[in-house]
Amino acid sequence: MLVLIWTLSLILSAISILVMVVLVLRRVVAARREERDAASRRHVMTAMIRLAHDKDADAFLVAAAGTPTSVTADASSEFLGLVRGEEREAVLEALLRAGQPDFLESELKRGDEVRRLHAVELIAAYAPDVAIGPLRGRLAGDRSREVRIAAAIELAKIGTVPPLGELLDRIGYRGQRSRRLAELFRLLPEDSVAELRDLTRQRDAPGFLRASALEALWRRDGLAEPSVFVELAEDAVPEVAAASLRALGRIGHRASLPLILSKLRHPDWEVRMEAVEAVGRLGDPDAAIAMTDLLDDEQWTVRYKAAQSLLLLGPVGEATLRSVALEGAARKQRTASLVLSEGMPA
């Protein structure tokens, strides 16, 4: 045993040092390649700037021909973010002629996750007839969920995504909590509203997903959907109830005021916070007394939001805050006086 410990340690240390020596040598070679690539990048970048200015695609194609395709792709990703309108169109046209989409397609098939993700975002810059096919391919079959979401987002920006159910099946939403999914919902085309509405009502779907769908609905055209928000404000999942109350407040749905007021005593603090904020936005002075109780809530954010919402009610709310600041219990008093000193929420 003792000899084994010693022998094994010698073997392992010799191997580790040897590997490190190989890596140092690899780095020497890589450094030379990087220098070469950096020079090529400068060259192709200059050609791209000239192209945007002079619209001389042929000169750019000559420069691109002498540059590794991956370097051109990398430079184009940066450059396209800087140009707009005709200049952007001219650059994209020239990149198309230089065979960039073919390279990006091969990256989408053979690259690692980072390169595939990058290629998805790059290929989406081209005309729909070039971009849609590869993007749909990634959405349908990429092994990385990040890449599938990115492809879906780009397809949504172009305005050609599959129906929501199919989209979520392809992305795979079990255990999914990415905020990027909320972004995707916001980008979905007009005809997806009914599907989004259905998703909000799917009790077996994750609360995060349903809340994201609710947010997308009110941001899109909340006034068209009050019945959904009213119904789901009663949902058992706090995340969903909170998102519905937020929606009701943001769209200014005064008819739901009694419902919102009933949520001021909800056991979940996020629901209470959204409810009190919604009441403030709806601006009903009669609600001031009910909101005053929340100035003593266990959660600071609820207390603070309640005070801000009271201020939003106008003279009645401000008078309520002043009287609490002068006479209320310590915690209520502090919250009221601090918000009074800070003024109206932005």
């Binding site: 003792l2 000899v3 410990i5 010693w6 094994l8 340690s9 010698l10 392992l12 240390s13």
Partner: peptide
Amino acid sequence: HYFLAFTALVFTYGIVISVCSLILEE
């Protein structure tokens, strides 16, 4: 052998661990 085994654990395995961390980095 006892002395050697202790030396291995302190010095030689120490080298393995440190160099391997560097390998990971590179």
